[in-house]
Amino acid sequence: MAGLEGYERVYRGRPLEPWEAGGGYPSKYHDREVIRPLDIPVVHPLAQNSPPQDDDTTVKKYVGLGCGLASLITENLLIHPFIVLRRQCQVNPVATKYHLVPITLVPVIIRLHQSQGLNILWKGIGSVLIVRGLALAVEDLVSKVTPWPKEITCNSSLRAFGQHLLLKCVAIGIVSPFYSASLVETVQSEIASERPGIFDVFRDGAIRLLEVTNKGRLIPIYALLPATVACGLAKYLFALIVRGVTSRIMHIRHKHSQEATGAYSRDLVSETVVQDIELHSALISTCAADVVFYPLETVILRLHLQGTRTIIDNLDDGRSVTPLLTGYSGAVDCYRTIIATEGPLGLYKGFGALILQFAAHVLVLRTTKWIITEITSMLRPKPKPIKPQHSYYNEI
């Protein structure tokens, strides 16, 4: 206002300080540093710098991929020594030790390594992989030249399901001669026979296919097809049912666990959760099918090896060898002979190796999951710490 330029501004009878009059704030007040309200950083705990929410999804994705790869490698490579052990037990009709538990196999494995080397339990791995690849190739080829589907889902029609089973039967029948040749390579002793070549399985399989007449005790492949196809198809159907039921139960349990938290997570139907559930359900179904059909598999293996003049390692002591001399006329006769001469437990010879097989499989998956989780946690950026809030009033 005009005429008041020379008067000081006062408040309640005292002159106003420059900072009270709208000027700059003083840097100190009563020898204490002054902090203006706008200079105090206020960070809400929920708004702090933290890793993106997608990091957890990325970690789960890598864990799922790693476990899937580990499971694939384990199924085709790491469990082969246990397959060799259990097959040698299953096909030996004169063995006195049944090896129903894993502990009895430990000294035998040690003696085999001492007498024949570290690679004794990896024999036949090449032919086994070739037969598995051949089975996949046959299924793929047949599915392309016929309307039979190679894969089915829960929404598939009954007709498609029947065609899919027919495809499996054809694939098992075509691969059976080569399966017989591969079986010989996995059980024969390397100290009593020559080591086969990588592609000998094709030659021996073709010879077995062309042998249509009985030569000694050798059973023609066409006589083995009904039992082999029936066993393979029944085992596949059982594993398919167990896998579907197990997967459904795991989905329901995951849903209930989400409901217990009070809200559904976005991972309820995510790809990582589905992948983890499918991996575990596949492992459970494979284990259940192998356990249930173990006696029938014992019968099928003995029929395929009869008359092949195969010499196997004697797993009673792990140091000697023994020839396979059997004279079964068919699957029923083989079953009755085993029950009569070896007892009901004779159908479960080598079951301890199957227990070791699945224990190793689970251990590999658990170890892989732990290692990948730890590595991704180490590589994930750490959240920045929250700066402590400065309180001016606490200092006064």
Rank of each mutant, 00 (worst) to 15 (best):
K61T: 14
K61E: 11
K61R: 08
K61F: 14
K61G: 10
Y62H: 12
V63A: 10
G64L: 05
G64M: 06
G64A: 15
L65H: 09
L65P: 00
G66F: 08
G66P: 00
G66D: 06
G66H: 04
C67T: 10
C67V: 14
C67A: 13
G68R: 01
G68F: 06
G68E: 02
G68V: 05
G68D: 04
L69M: 13
L69K: 01
L69D: 06
L69I: 15
L69R: 00
A70M: 07
S71R: 00
S71F: 14
L72K: 00
L72I: 09
I73R: 00
T74S: 09
E75Y: 12
E75F: 11
L77W: 12
L77Q: 02
L77C: 14
L77M: 10
L78Y: 07
L78W: 04
L78D: 05
L78Q: 04
L78R: 01
I79Q: 04
I79L: 13
I79F: 07
I79V: 15
H80R: 02
H80Y: 10
P81N: 03
P81Y: 05
P81G: 05
P81R: 02
P81V: 06
F82N: 00
I83L: 13
I83G: 04
I83A: 08
L85H: 04
L85P: 01
L85C: 08
R86E: 11
R86W: 11
R87Q: 14
R87A: 15
Q88E: 09
Q88T: 13
C89S: 10
C89I: 03
C89Y: 02
C89F: 05
Q90R: 04
Q90L: 07
V91F: 04
V91I: 13
V91W: 00
V91L: 04
V91E: 01
V91T: 06
P93M: 01
P93D: 02
P93R: 00
P93E: 01
V94D: 15
V94I: 12
V94Q: 12
V94F: 12
V94C: 09
A95K: 00
A95P: 09
A95R: 00
A95H: 01
A95D: 05
K97N: 14
K97P: 07
Y98C: 08
Y98A: 12
Y98V: 05
Y98L: 13
H99F: 09
H99Y: 07
V101E: 14
V101G: 08
V101Y: 15
V101C: 13
P102D: 08
P102N: 12
P102S: 13
T104R: 09
T104V: 09
T104F: 11
T104H: 13
L105W: 03
L105D: 03
V106M: 11
V106C: 06
P107E: 04
P107Y: 08
P107M: 06
P107F: 10
P107H: 09
V108K: 00
V108F: 04
I109F: 08
I109C: 10
I109H: 02
I109Y: 03
I109W: 03
I110P: 03
R111D: 10
R111T: 09
L112A: 01
L112Y: 01
H113S: 03
Q114R: 15
S115I: 06
S115E: 07
S115W: 03
S115P: 03
S115G: 09
